[in-house]
Write a protein that binds this DNA or RNA. Structure first.
Length: 917
RNA sequence: GGGCGAUUAGCUCAGUUGGUUAGAGCGCUCCCCUCACACGGGAGAGGUCCAAGGUUCAAGUCCUUGAUCGCCCACCA
C-alpha cells in the first residue's frame, strides 16, 4: 500500500537523483556488441573539459537521449558512447587564466608542471561534467567512456598523423597563419572569427626616390609599414604607370622599396596604391612570393615590435601604431585619416585581435580528403537534416583550404616528428605505439637517429595538434581504431550524429573526411563515420542572444533542474526544438512542462488512490495486473466506447510519434504526447470512467480497470524517451511492474491490429462537441457550476440517436445536466438557449436564470455575420465552373456538405434572433 | 561581396507535400479551492499570417521584388 501513498505535488528532485544513480550504478545502458538485433550507434559530441555542461549541451543530450531511448525500446542493439574532449587551446586558456589569478605563468613553471596542472583541472572539470550528465539521466554506456588523451585514443591520433604524413597529406612549411599574440600559437581559419568593427584608414605619403613626387598608400594597420618591402599598383592604372619600377622611400625607416605592378590591387580602393608587407598580410605574402620580395617580420610572437622595427622595437603593436601615426603626421607624411568599417580577425578563444604572421607550421592537404566527402553527401550516403545545411556543407567542402594543424601549445597530442640537430631534416616515429609515463600517454617509438644523416641529435617537434584533429577521429578512436576491434566491427559506421550546426565545419566535416580516408573498408558506405547527420539549433537566452560566459547569460542546467526537474527542462527544450530555428529559452516555458509532469503524476495518483478502494471491494491486484493486460486491451466492458476510443487514440498517437522521431521532428512528437496525455487521457478518458471504476458489476469494474491500467502503462512507455524519470518512477509503482528492472528496457509500445477505430473516433468527437456546447451555454447563462439544468436534444440521424442513447449518463454528467429530453428531427419551441451542430440541436434551459438577451443577441449577430460571409464565399466558389472542373471531386463535395450545414446553422440563428426580438 | 534564416494572437513560437472555420504554451477575461491535480477544472476574447505584385479553381504555404531583423562564409590593403 505504501507504494500508492504518493505526494499530492510531484517533487522530482529526489526521484530523479535516485533513478539517475541507479541507472548509472547498474550499468543499465551498457551495449552488448554480441547481442542480436539491428544495430544503432551514436557517439556523444564530447564536451570540452573546460568547465561544466551548459544548457546547450542539455538540448543536445536530450535530443540524443530521446533518439537513443526510442531505439533501445524499439529493440535495436543500441550504443551511445560518451566521452570528453581535452579541447587543447580552450582548456589551456582557461587554466592559464586560473593560474594568472594566482600570479602564475605557464612559461615560469615549465611544460611538465603546466601539463600537470591542466590534468588536475581536467580531473575536476571532467568529474563535474560526468556528474552533471548522470544527473541529466542520459542513457549512455559509461563503461565505454573515453577521453581524447587516453592512451588508445592518443595512439589513434598518432596513427592518423603518421599515415597522412607518409602519404604526403601532412606537410610542414613557412606560411602566413592566423596568430594569436595572447595564446602565442597559430590558429586555423575556423578558429579565427571575424568581427565587423569601426576602424580607420590612414593615408600615408611615400616619397619617390630621386623625385619630389610622392605616392600615397592607404592602410588600416600603419604599424606594419615598418615591414613594407614594396608598393603595389594596378598595371593598368594610368595614374601610377609612370612610377612602376621606380623606388619609393619607406618613411620612418628610410628604406628604398620598389613600386611594383600587380593585378590584385584594387584601383577603386583607397588611392589605388597599396603598401606591401609580405610578413604581415596574407595578400601581401602571396604578392611577395610572386615578386620575390623580402619578408620582414617586425613583431615578436607576443605582439610587440621587434628589432626589425627600429626605433619602435619593444613597443606593443597598438602603441606602436599610435606612435607611428604621430610621427608620420609630424613629418607631414600623413595625408588624411578616414573612418573605415572593416572586419577584424579575433581569436575564438581569448578574443584577442589576431595578427597574420609568417611562421613554420604543419598543414593538412584538404582537397584530396574533401572529395570523397563531397561524393558521400551528393550520393546521399550521408544524409543531412535539415536539408538546407547540405548546401552549406558542400560549399565548404568544395572551397576548402589547407588546414593548419599545429599549435604552439602544451596541452594536446604532441606531433610525432623529430628534427635533426645536424642536418635539420625530419624523422617520424616508426609506428604509432604509445606508452604511459606518469599516467600520461606519449608516443613510444622514439627514433634513435636521423633518417637522413644518421645523427643522434634528435629533438621532438614541440608543437601539439589542433584539438579538432583528434576530435575528427572520434568515431574511429573511441571504437578502438586502428585495431579492428569487435566494437569497431559492430558499431562503425555509427548510425547517426547529432551536433550543433555551429561545429559543422570544425568537427562534423573533419570526421567525415578523416573517417572516409582512414577507416577500414572498400566502400564509402563502410568508411563513412555516420550515415545520418542531424544538426540541431542553438539555445539562446530569452532575448535571442547566444549564451556565452563573457556575456554572463549562461544558464546552469543544474539550477533549473533543482527548481523544475530534469524532465520539465527536457520537455521544454524538446517542444521548442523545431529544426532550423534557434531556441530562446525562458523559465515560463519550463514552468508549464513542470505542470505537465505534475498532471501525469496526479493522474497516477488518482489511479493508485482508487486501486485501494477496489482492493477493499475484494478485487485482487493480480486480477487487475493479469499478464495479458498489455496484449488484450481493450477488454470488453459494458460501456465499450471510451475504451475503444482511447486505444484508437493510442494507435494514432504512436504512429505520429514514430513518424515525428523518424524525421527528427522532436517538437511534434512532444506536442502529440502532451495533448494526448493531458487532453485525451486526463480530461476525457479518466473523467468519463470515474463512475464506472466503482461499478457494482465486478466483472465490469475489473475490465474497466484493466483497460485504464493498460492504457496508462502504454502511454508511460510512449512518454518515456521524453520524460525518463517521471515515467520510470510511475511505471514501477504499477502493480504489474513492481519487480521489473526499468521501463527503459521495455519495448516501445506498438498498437495491436484493430485498435484503430474510426467509428469510436467519430462518436467520441460528436459527444465531446455536444458536451462542450452544453457547457458553453451554461457558462453563457452564468448557471452556477454545481447546478444541473434540463436540456433538450434533437437528433439529426439514426447514428446520432444510437450514440446519444448509449451515452446519456456521460453527456449529463460531463455537461452537468439534470435530464436530457431526446427527440428525433426538430426541436420544439421552448425556453432556453439553442446550439446547432452537425449531428444535433441542443437547447439548454435557463433553469430560472434570466437570459441576457442583449448578450445573446450580440453573440448571435456576430455569428450570423461570420456565417453570411462564409456562405457567400462558398457559394461563389461552387458557382465557379473552373473550380468545379479542376478541383478534386472530394474537395468539391466537401465544400457542398459544409455549405449545406452552414445554411442550416444560419437558418437557426436567424430563427433564434427573431424569437429574441 | 556571396549565401542562409526569420517576419503568423499581447509575448515566445508551431504550421511536412498549396485544399473547407490558421494552432500551442504563457498572458488576458468570466466562473469554480467539484473527493487526482489551483503546477488544477470549465468557458471565452484575441490574428487584413511584414508589404506589393504574380502563378493557381484554390496561397500563411509556391514564384518575383522590396522592407526590417539575425546568422554564416569570404585574403578588399
Amino acid at each position: 500500500m505504501t507504494a500508492r501513498e504518493i505526494p499530492k505535488a510531484y517533487e522530482p528532485q529526489d526521484i530523479e537523483r535516485r533513478w539517475a544513480q541507479a541507472w548509472f550504478d547498474e550499468k543499465l545502458y551498457r551495449a552488448d556488441a554480441r547481442a542480436d538485433g539491428e544495430m544503432f550507434s551514436i557517439v556523444l559530441p564530447p564536451p570540452n573539459v573546460t568547465g561544466s555542461i551548459h544548457i546547450g549541451h542539455m538540448l543536445e543530450h536530450t535530443q540524443i537521449d530521446i533518439i537513443v531511448r526510442w531505439h533501445r525500446m524499439l529493440g535495436f542493439k543500441t550504443l551511445w558512447l560518451p566521452g570528453m574532449d581535452h579541447a587543447g587551446i580552450a582548456t589551456q586558456v582557461v587554466v592559464e587564466r586560473e593560474l594568472a589569478k594566482k600570479g602564475l605563468k605557464r612559461e615560469q613553471m615549465g611544460r611538465e608542471e603546466f601539463e600537470r596542472r591542466v590534468w588536475q583541472w581536467k580531473a575536476e572539470s571532467g568529474g563535474r561534467i560526468k556528474t552533471q550528465m548522470i544527473r541529466l539521466g542520459v542513457s549512455c554506456d559509461w563503461t565505454r567512456e573515453k577521453f581524447t588523451l587516453d592512451p588508445p585514443l592518443y595512439r589513434a591520433v598518432m596513427e592518423a598523423f603518421l599515415r597522412l604524413y607518409r602519404e604526403g597529406l601532412i606537410y610542414r612549411g613557412r606560411y602566413m597563419v592566423n596568430w594569436c599574440p595572447r595564446c602565442q600559437t597559430a590558429l586555423s581559419d575556423l578558429e579565427t572569427v571575424h568581427e565587423q568593427r569601426e576602424g580607420k584608414l590612414w593615408f600615408i605619403r611615400y616619397p619617390i626616390a630621386g623625385s619630389s613626387e610622392t605616392i600615397t598608400v592607404a592602410t588600416t594597420r600603419p604599424e606594419t609599414m615598418l615591414g613594407d618591402t614594396a608598393v603595389a599598383v594596378h598595371p593598368q592604372d594610368e595614374r601610377y604607370k609612370h612610377l612602376i619600377g621606380k623606388m619609393a622611400v619607406l618613411p620612418l625607416m628610410s628604406r628604398e622599396i620598389p613600386i611594383i605592378a600587380d593585378d590584385v590591387v584594387d584601383r577603386e580602393f583607397g588611392t589605388g596604391a597599396a603598401k606591401v608587407t609580405p610578413a604581415h598580410d596574407p595578400n601581401d605574402f602571396a604578392m611577395g612570393q610572386r615578386h620575390k620580395l623580402a619578408e620582414i617580420d617586425v613583431m615578436t610572437p607576443d605582439g610587440h615590435m621587434n628589432a626589425a622595427a627600429g626605433a619602435y622595437a619593444g613597443m606593443g603593436r597598438f602603441a606602436a601604431r599610435e606612435k607611428i601615426v604621430e610621427d608620420l603626421n609630424s613629418h607631414g607624411l600623413l595625408e588624411r585619416v578616414t573612418n573605415h568599417a572593416m572586419s577584424v580577425g579575433i581569436c575564438d578563444r581569448c578574443k584577442t585581435i589576431i595578427e597574420p604572421r609568417l611562421s613554420v607550421q604543419w598543414f593538412c592537404k584538404m582537397k584530396p580528403l574533401a572529395e570523397p566527402g563531397i561524393q558521400a553527401v551528393q550520393d546521399e550516403l550521408l544524409s543531412v537534416v535539415p536539408e538546407n545545411q547540405k548546401k552549406i556543407f558542400l560549399d565548404w567542402l568544395t572551397n576548402i583550404r589547407d588546414w593548419c594543424i599545429s599549435r604552439q601549445l602544451w596541452w594536446g597530442h604532441r606531433i610525432p616528428i623529430w628534427h635533426c640537430g645536424d642536418c635539420g631534416s625530419m624523422t617520424p616515429a616508426k609506428d604509432s605505439r604509445v606508452e604511459v609515463v606518469n599516467e600520461r600517454a606519449q608516443i613510444a617509438s622514439v627514433p634513435e637517429k636521423c633518417e637522413k644523416c644518421g645523427s643522434g641529435k634528435l629533438t621532438q617537434d614541440p608543437d601539439v595538434l589542433d584539438t579538432w584533429f583528434s576530435s575528427g577521429l572520434w568515431p574511429l578512436s573511441t571504437l578502438g581504431w586502428p585495431d579492428e576491434t569487435e566494437d569497431l566491427r559492430t558499431f562503425y559506421p555509427t548510425s547517426l550524429l547529432i551536433s550543433g550546426y555551429d561545429i559543422l565545419f570544425f568537427w562534423d566535416a573533419r570526421m567525415v573526411m578523416l573517417g572516409l580516408h582512414l577507416a577500414p573498408g572498400a566502400t564509402i558506405e563502410q568508411r563513412i563515420p555516420f550515415r545520418e547527420l542531424y544538426l540541431h539549433a542553438i539555445v539562446r537566452d530569452p532575448h535571442g542572444m547566444k549564451m556565452s560566459k563573457t556575456r554572463g547569460n549562461v544558464v546552469d542546467p543544474l539550477e533549473i533542474i533543482e527548481k523544475y526537474g530534469t524532465d520539465a527542462l527536457r520537455f521544454a527544450l524538446t517542444v521548442m526544438a523545431a529544426p532550423g530555428t534557434d531556441i530562446a529559452l525562458s523559465e515560463e516555458r519550463i514552468l508549464s512542462y513542470r505542470a505537465f509532469a505534475n498532471k501525469i503524476w496526479n493522474a497516477a495518483r488518482f489511479l493508485f488512490f482508487n486501486l485501494g478502494k477496489i482492493e477493499a471491494a475484494g478485487v485482487t491486484l493480480d486480477e487487475l495486473a493479469a499478464p495479458e493486460i498489455r496484449a488484450k486491451a481493450p477488454y470488453a466492458t459494458r460501456d465499450a466506447l471510451p475504451h475503444q476510443w482511447i486505444f484508437s487514440r493510442l494507435a494514432a498517437v504512436t504512429a505520429e510519434i514514430n513518424d515525428a522521431l523518424e524525421n527528427f521532428r522532436f517538437h511534434e512528437a512532444a506536442h502529440v504526447i502532451y495533448h494526448f496525455f493531458w487532453g485525451d487521457f486526463c480530461d476525457w478518458y479518466i473523467e468519463w470512467l470515474k463512475p464506472q471504476l466503482a461499478s457494482e458489476n465486478r466483472e465490469d469494474a475489473i475490465a474497466t480497470w484493466r483497460n485504464l491500467f493498460a492504457a496508462f502503462e502504454y502511454a508511460l512507455r510512449l512518454l518515456h524517451p521524453f520524460m525518463p524519470f517521471l515515467t520510470e518512477e510511475l511505471w514501477h509503482r504499477l502493480p504489474q511492474n513492481a519487480a521489473a528492472k526499468s521501463i527503459s528496457l521495455q519495448s516501445f509500445p506498438a498498437p495491436l491490429d484493430g485498435w484503430a477505430n474510426a467509428d469510436a473516433d467519430r462518436g467520441v468527437a460528436a459527444l465531446q462537441e455536444l458536451i462542450i456546447a452544453a457547457r458553453n451555454i451554461r457558462a453563457e447563462l452564468k448557471v452556477d457550476n454545481k447546478k444541473k439544468v434540463g436540456a433538450e436534444l434533437a437528433l439529426k440521424s439514426a447514428d446520432a440517436r444510437r450514440l446519444v442513447e448509449a451515452n446519456l449518463d456521460v453527456i449529463c454528467r460531463l455537461g452537468t445536466l439534470s435530464a436530457l429530453r431526446v427527440r428525433h428531427g426538430e426541436l420544439e419551441a421552448g425556453e432556453g438557449v439553442v446550439r446547432s451542430m452537425p449531428q444535433f440541436d441542443l437547447r439548454i434551459q435557463s433553469g430560472g436564470q434570466p437570459i441576457d438577451a442583449k448578450a445573446e443577441t450580440a453573440k448571435l449577430k456576430k455569428e450570423r455575420a461570420r456565417l453570411e460571409k462564409d456562405i457567400a464565399a462558398k457559394q461563389q466558389r461552387l458557382a465557379d465552373d473552373t473550380f468545379r472542373s479542376r478541383a478534386p471531386a472530394e474537395i468539391v463535395r466537401g465544400l457542398e456538405t459544409t455549405l449545406a450545414e452552414r445554411r442550416i446553422e444560419y437558418q437557426r440563428i436567424v430563427e433564434r434572433l427573431a424569437q429574441l426580438e
